[in-house]
Design a protein around this nucleic acid. Sequence first.
RNA 1: GCGAGGGUAGCCAAGCCGGGAAACGGCGGCGGACUCAAGAUCCGCUCCCGUAGGGGUCCAAGGGUUCAAAUCCCUUCCCUCGCACCA
Length: 962
Amino acid sequence: MDYEPQDVETKWRERWAREGRYEADPDDSDPTFITVPYPYPSGGMHLGHCRTYTVPDVYARYRRLQGENVLFPIAWHVTGTPIVGAVERLKEGDEEQMSSLQDAFGVPESDLQDLETPMGYARYFIEEADSSYKRGMRQMGLSIDWRREFTTNDERYSKFITWQYETLKERGLLEKGLHPVDFCTNERQPVTDHDLLEGEDADHQEFTLVRFYQGESLDADDATVFPMATLRPETVRGVTNAYVHPEATYVRATVDGEEWVVSEAATEKLGLQAREVDIADRFPGSELVGEAVTNPVTGDEFVILPATFVDADNATGVVMSVPAHSPDDIVALDEAKTAADAIAEEYGVEADEIRAIEPVPILEIEGYGTDDPALHEATEELYQDEFLNGHLLESYGEFAGEGIEEVRERFREHHRNGGRFGVMYEYTEEVVCRCGGEVEVSVRDTWFIRYNDPGWQAKAREAVERMDAIPENTRKQYDDTIDWLEEWPCIRNYGLGTRLPWDDEFVIEPLSDSTIYMAYYTIAPRIREIPVEDLDREFFDTLFFGPDGADAPDGHEVDIDDPDERALELREEWDYWYPVDFRCSANDLIRNHLTFYLYHHAELFEQEDWPQGITSMGLGLLEGKKMSSSKGHVVLPGEAIDRYGADTVRFFLLNSAEPWQDYDWRAEEVRSTREKLERFWDRAVDIIDREVPDDPDLEPIDRWLLSKLQGTVRHVTDALDRFETRTASQAAFYRFEENLRWYRRRTDTDRLAAAWTLRQVLATRLRLLAPFVPFMTNELHEAMTGDPAEDGTEAGIPAEDAAWPEPDPAFESPETEAREELIADLVDDIRDIVDVTGTDPETIRAYVAADWKHEVFETVREVGPDVGAVMGAAMEREALRERGEAVNELAGDLVELVRGREAEALDALSSVDEQAVYRDATAFLEEEFDAAVEVYAEDGKPVDPENRAGQAVPFRPAVHIA
RNA sequence: GCGAGGGUAGCCAAGCCGGGAAACGGCGGCGGACUCAAGAUCCGCUCCCGUAGGGGUCCAAGGGUUCAAAUCCCUUCCCUCGCACCA
């Protein structure tokens, strides 16, 4: 029976599908509910996705083997714009998109037409494509309950999300506010990243508008405001003058009831940013030159100068100059001074006034003098350094002395509240829409989720505290995220998904409609029987909070007039499965999705239904580099499985790194993994084919192997409880192979008792390995016993019949293990001597330490690893006292030996009859070294031609080779 | 700069939480056994020295605590990620 993974795997895939093997329904046994983020089918599945789903599959299979009723469902996330955008780009024939589809995911020309509607596109990558998720997941052998799939665009799912958002709104956790969005000035509508032709990476920057003015005061009725945009509002005290572009067009306009002077280009932006703008007058910038404006913070007046470096299209087109802290500004100022006479003539400004302008430092910083020439260079470095290390000077009053990093925001808020500062958004670079239109930042009404609500934060923190965070060091990241989160804009203007219930112009965005959907899995199959229109608020209230609403979290009253019977039936399912035991996800989702998941559960459900655990995973590399479907640097699961088999792919993914570490898919290593599995298979087949006795006559070496097996069971179980798939598979597979190698070397495996032993070992290992390589283990186990390895894991099997092995105390023997270790140690010692001396011995003599030496060992064992104390105790014994010096020397060695060993191991060692151990191993040693082997006691009149016997130490016999 | 995680032999990678063996395992390399041969398999070796199981020097660098440190503490350097920042 050769290893043909394709045949074996096809057979089991079909069988599992036919039997509905992994469909889970409530029963009497304990539930385990495992989830993984639903995939976003904006493209096909590649190997980078595979481990994310395989790790929970291993855990699911493990818990099933332990007798739990396990639910592992999947669904499809299609919300928002990525799929819509992908379809549009496809229709346009976008090159990158086509390459990703055709090269990375192997979409044939003939299929492209199926992808021209958003849900058609989604459907294609969910289940139709060769590289579809569903196909990949089936091929990988994921033990998913396929009856529970849905998409987030399903109408019933939308009803569920509607319930969620209505509930949150009612609890005051949503709020309406202004938020900057990308807005196409041509199409007159908001656009997303995917709609952009240029500037996809551009960020909105939030500029502070410093409201310089002319007039009596800023509040005066006849005041004119000259808003100047800056990212560094704290430099306001260093302003010495302003610049406008003399040839650009400026306007005088009424903005929100005030008179403003800004560039003409700025008025459109301001209009988009929720301001009322009414232009009164247009004129060239040159007309502004020479005018004086007042600094709202200092009250000082200064002059407006011309500068051609000013970009009237950027922000307000009026720029404040801080020469002490901006290289650009000081260069411009120097130029203006040089050209003072010319400027004076052209614009009618006093030349001396220009020459009198001097930089005003506003902060101090170590390493630079405030007029250091270094200021003229390295703008970026300076800004960075000032931000991180600068401290404000005296003139800042309450803000003086503070680091810029800490003070900027407070300073800005202070003056904003005082009406001296305003705000305006602008891009870092030009942004152009696919339609060719210019994209500007618009500020519009949006709904936000109030993740910074103190009460809600407290609940979320509690949820973090109560859950199992794997690995533990991620826990702090959740807390940090809770501290850091502010309001989250939760709607978009278009895309797939659920409409905002009270304003159907908007769609709830993807990270906001995916926070409690795990609950939907529990009801997904049966909710289909209920008419959509019946799924109203009260239906879900009944489902989640019970017939009288009593199970709503504390502090929330839920009135239910007429509990729907059907909701109560679904409630039983949800009640059975919830909470989610483990959510297996990725590191990079901690900062958003996973924390949102905790927030929403903490708000909507009672504590007992909060998430029990999250394990977060690292990412996958391909031959040392990040996988990327847009660059075509991917391997598809189908390809890998065709070449190596699904078991190999799984085993590699699970064994090459722990889940939270990054793993690296290297073809060479995968091939070697495949070879190892093949060898395992061949050996297993040999064992299965052999006759075995009912009542074997076990030898010590058989018992040794069986004892090792028990330790392995313990080790693997512990590791899997902590999601350590690498440690677990390593122990069950490679580590145990080492034991087998020794076993084969030590004994004649043709013995009947050996056949029996190997069969026991195989049966146990097949079950230990079943979560990792389910196809081959089930096949082999069935071939051997008539039942698959995972038998006893069907729903409804009592826990005591569970198939997961437990350590059998009858086969645990530390003493047997200790004996075997002595033999291995002796082999090593002899080999060392043979190597170093370069001799090929004919006779090997081993001398076991004399009784009195063992007495010293016993003393050490009792007293502990402390030479002084040992000597004290030893000297009380007459037999040892007379050997004072020798005892002292030996005690040192033995203290070393005892140190670091468990008491149990020492007990085992102590009960071993050393001489008998080596005598029993004589035949083995003779074979190993092709020499005669003689074993003596040091104190038993040994043959000792070179006086070696005296070197013997307990558990370290003296050796003589000749 | 802040936050998180790291730096272990040619490469990958354990060990560090709970100090006590040149430091698990794999890959690669070298030698040997088996074989007509290759592959597979098995057995060694793979920091330096060593014709008796030993010695020396090691776990980014430097200090410290300790009888004892890859493991604990401090400092420095470097890498990865997140944040911030850049009219």
